[in-house]
Nucleic acid binder design. Sequence first.
RNA 1: GGGCGGUUAGCUCAGCUGGUUAGAGCGCCUGCCUUACAAGCAGGAGGUCGCAGGUUCGAGUCCUGCACUGCCCACCA
Length: 914
Amino acid sequence: MPHELPKAYEPGDIEKRWAEYWISEKLFSVKTPPAGEKRPVFTLLLPPPNVTGRLHMGHMLNQTQMDIIVRWHRMRGFLTLWLPGTDHAGIATQMMVDRQLRSEGKSRLGMGREKFVERVWEWKRHYGGAILDQMKRLGASVDWDREYFTMDENLSRAVREVFVRLYEQGLIYRGKYIVNWCADCGTAISDLEVKHEDVPGKLYEIRYPVIGSDEFITVATTRPETMLGDTAVAVNEKDERYTHLHGKKVLLPLMKREIPIITDELAQPEFGTGAVKVTPAHDANDFEAGLRHNLPQIEVIDEHNKMSSNAGPYAGLDRFAARAKVLEDLTAQGFLVATKDYTVALGKCDRSGTIVEPRLSTQWFVKIKPMADKAIAAVERGEITIVPDNYRQVYLNWMRNIHDWCISRQLWWGHRIPAWRCSCGEMIVARETPAKCPKCGAAALEQDTDVLDTWFSSGLLPFTTLGWPEKTRDQEVFYPTTLLITAYEILFFWVARMVMFGCHFMQGHQQDPALKQASGWGEKKDDSVPFRQVYIHALVRDAERQKMSKTKGNVIDPLEIIERFGTDATRFTLAAMAAPGTDIAFNESRTDGYRKFANKIWNAARFMFMNLDAAEHAGVWKRAELPADLGGFRPETLEDRWILSRFQRVTKDVNDALETFRFHEAANRIYDFFWGDFCDWYIELIKPRLAVDGNKDSVKAACGNLMSLFEASLRLLHPVMPFITEEIWQAVYDGKPPQKSIALAAYPKADETRIDLDAETEMAVLQDLIVSVRNLRAELKVETKAKVPIQIYAPENGVRGLVEGNRNAVERLATVENVEFVQTSLARLPGARHTARFDVHVIYEKQVDVAAERERLKKDLEKIEKEIANGQRQLSNEQFLAKAPAQVVEGLKKRAAELQVLREKTASKLKELG
RNA sequence: GGGCGGUUAGCUCAGCUGGUUAGAGCGCCUGCCUUACAAGCAGGAGGUCGCAGGUUCGAGUCCUGCACUGCCCACCA
């Protein structure tokens, strides 16, 4: 790799090149180790995007976080498996292909099930890989050799196995119940797929004539059209208003049907009139009540949301047209008593937006309670930790109030339910297509036409992707997976289901004890859980905090952002903004800032290579093998000791932050270190030492130190910015790196013995001095290039020695030409600045702006006084001295001493100025 | 109806387990094309941490209430 790097960083080609390299070299493919290996293992399952999906910001955030964690583990020596795949996404995909067919003038129904499914497969082969290709652009370090698709044969077999086992265990049943029906999708959907929306509506009060009296009983409803299917009116047993009507009947208006008045807890005396109409076929509560009282179920709305023949004169009308007509007729006949404004929680289909109809229908259900109990226990016992912690409670609440899960869908695309019906009425649930009916021997069996809810199969992925139902080595090694990173939105859809299925089907499973131990999970007792940890990340919103949506047109396309700013910068943005618990308002200006950060790194690299090459050319230094992990770093000067110390700190902080998913902290720490410490100070300080005409040994050391530290910093940054770090890292090794990729190099580990407090303190004083002089120069309006003489008063020997020892640095970085030490304080002079440890005076003929100076000092003094007062109050408080940690007291005392000095200097100067 | 978050500089956000002087980026102002970087450098202005109480030696951080705001869950017509 030539070191003639272009002046500005151009991510496009570089990123593409390395993304391809990582894949073609199979760097992230994992071989399952045999028994006997003792190595930490890290497993992560990619939440499978829909095959129909296109990468959006949510994916990108999710994948960036996963990739950071994955690369970090890999570099720390974990056997790291990240499993990618896609979800067949039943409804979404079917709708997509439906639409395509329609545009060709064809229809699903016209072509028949078999042909349609074949067509979907064809579509999948063509377009299904798009989202994974987009992932490749992000640099996601997944194991492409293990890519799965939820409809793969082996995964489908596992799905059938699960279904049959649950059926045999009595945990799957089939029955006619109220389900959420979406007429648009033509299928039942689960409770989770219904989104409630508060909309202004009406509450209608309708009176039903009581038979055998001239009395009426008034019921309240938001859905008058369902009265056509009423089979009772309920009142509460304790409601004395209605005691005299118990056992009587009413004549249902419009339908002229006699229906009983029943007593049931369904009716709450406080609400409305205390009497409620009962429509068992169109309301979940009424359905239950109907069962309790053995009421007939009259379906008046069909699967197309039209009134059925049971609706008499209203048959054929759309449900809402029917509502209008019913109200009209009720009014005309004097049955409508009142119409009140009322907010209705309308249930809409998550997918199509159609208003969902509670409808009586025969479906398959999972009896969820037994599995939910295990899933609750796993989290309660801490076998699974959920981060941030508040989601733990959300999860538990949901799990404790869970209802049976409707798993059948009236679709063609998906895992078909492995149940067959014989004409004799026998139902056969089997792993493989049965040849004949076990009861009557008939061969003409019809398979159930429904498919399974997509989440049924994705809920199994943690173990089915590892070869279940066979007992495989993969499971011993990689199950339970270590972590799951996902969005809150699918906590219930997916996470909760994985926990239930995992705990149920992997009960008794044991991870290879040696690997489990080495991975740090030794104390965990239960290896049936699908993952040890769950991290829930925030939502990405637009810059105005709005949820992104196609209809609002505020969707930010990550690929477009990547195109403009580079993948690394985009990844960095997402990491830096991802503070746990808060949503991310994606702001391009931040990404632009991180693009500049990449450029900064790039130019620091150019600087380094320029100097290394010059040194090598001059024969002062040879680019030999770079000792691993800062092994070649020889601290010679203050800045060497200082930067080494700072590096240990940033390394510690970054590792700590990643341990607890504080991505923003990790990113910001590296940013500050690299830009602030490394570029602004270290590089500036080391510059003269790199001059090839200098002392050979010291040039050599400087080159080695610069390169060592840069190389280590690249490794530190790599999980967040994989591309630019790879590019420069490869160049550092001149195409002969010790590993094929920086992704396989070791992650920096903090060595706290290399933290040098003295160096940090001294450097801070030096920085203070230089900044003070720069300050004064600006204030005095000294021409930029003019070197000025300065005077320094530094009563402490240490400080004086420090400045003398780094006189060069001061002269260069503050543009100073002569440093004179004096014996008396300079604080009062115009054109001087002071800190607690030194005074510095810039000798220059121009005058300071006295008024401005006075203002500044006044402000300073005020602050100092305030702080002194605060400090004194605390230090004179016995309680404080007794209770506060010694370190805090000590610090405060030290500060108090400093403040005294500062106050005196500042006050006397202020006095001087008048 | 239940639950969960947010409110800190003009804007977008950090501030983890309470501890000395509340930070960053962007924007703004001033001066610099100093041979790594003008996608840069140097300097600067800008905050009674939503409001009111409380706990504590000490509160942006913990507690209570209020206000505004966002989200999730829910089979009361």
